Lab assay of single mutants.
Amino acid sequence: SELMNSSKLIRMLEEDGWRLVRVTGSAHHFKHPKKPGLVTVPHPKKDLPIGTVKSIQKSAGL
């Protein structure tokens, strides 16, 4: 199965306009000026399962 580095996923979010608002432990929480909701990324993780990545991307509207 495909894995993604959390840094790469965070870069994709930031390029889309998401900004880090809070860190709780290894959970990084992002908000967007125009899009609704809060997106949480486990970080640092070298090997996020593709299912997790897809669900984060979906929440972020990517």
Rank of each mutant, 00 (worst) to 15 (best):
A60F: 02
Q57H: 07
K8A: 14
V41S: 00
G51A: 14
S26Y: 10
P49I: 03
G37S: 05
V23G: 06
S1E: 10
D47N: 14
L3W: 08
R11H: 13
G25L: 11
W18I: 00
R22G: 11
R19N: 10
D16H: 07
M12H: 06
V23D: 07
H32R: 01
H28S: 05
P36Y: 08
D16I: 06
I56D: 02
E2L: 09
S26W: 12
H43L: 02
P36C: 08
S26R: 14
K45C: 09
E14D: 06
T40E: 10
H28M: 06
P49L: 06
T24W: 11
H28A: 15
G17I: 00
P49D: 15
P33L: 08
V39L: 06
W18L: 00
H29S: 13
L13T: 00
R11D: 13
R19T: 14
W18T: 00
V23C: 07
L48A: 02
R22Y: 13
G17Y: 02
G25Y: 13
G37P: 03
S7K: 12
P49K: 06
L48I: 10
K35A: 03
I50F: 10
P44Y: 04
K35N: 03
P33E: 07
K54A: 12
P36D: 09
I50R: 09
L20G: 03
P49F: 05
M4L: 07
K34R: 13
N5C: 12
I56R: 01
G51H: 12
K54F: 05
T40P: 04
R11W: 08
V39S: 02
K35P: 00
K45Y: 08
S1M: 14
R11V: 10
S6W: 04
L62D: 02
K34D: 09
L48P: 01
P36M: 08
G37N: 09
K46V: 10
P44F: 04
K46M: 11
H28R: 07
M12S: 07
T40S: 14
K35D: 01
S26I: 15
D16Y: 05
S1H: 13
S59N: 13
T24M: 10
V39K: 01
T40C: 09
L13G: 00
D47S: 13
I10V: 05
L3H: 12
K46A: 14
R19L: 12
S1Q: 15
G25E: 15
P36V: 08
M12V: 09
G25V: 14
W18G: 00
V21H: 10
H32K: 02
L13M: 06
K46N: 15
S7I: 09
H32W: 00
V39G: 00
K35T: 04
R22M: 14
W18D: 00
N5F: 07
I50W: 14
H32P: 00
K8Y: 12
G37E: 05
P33F: 10
G37F: 04
L9Q: 02
K35V: 03
V21T: 10
T24Q: 11
S7N: 09
L3E: 11
K35S: 03
L38I: 14
S26K: 12
S7M: 09
G51R: 13
S55G: 11
L3C: 09
T52C: 08
D16R: 04
L13E: 00
A27D: 11
L9N: 01
K35L: 03
L48M: 07
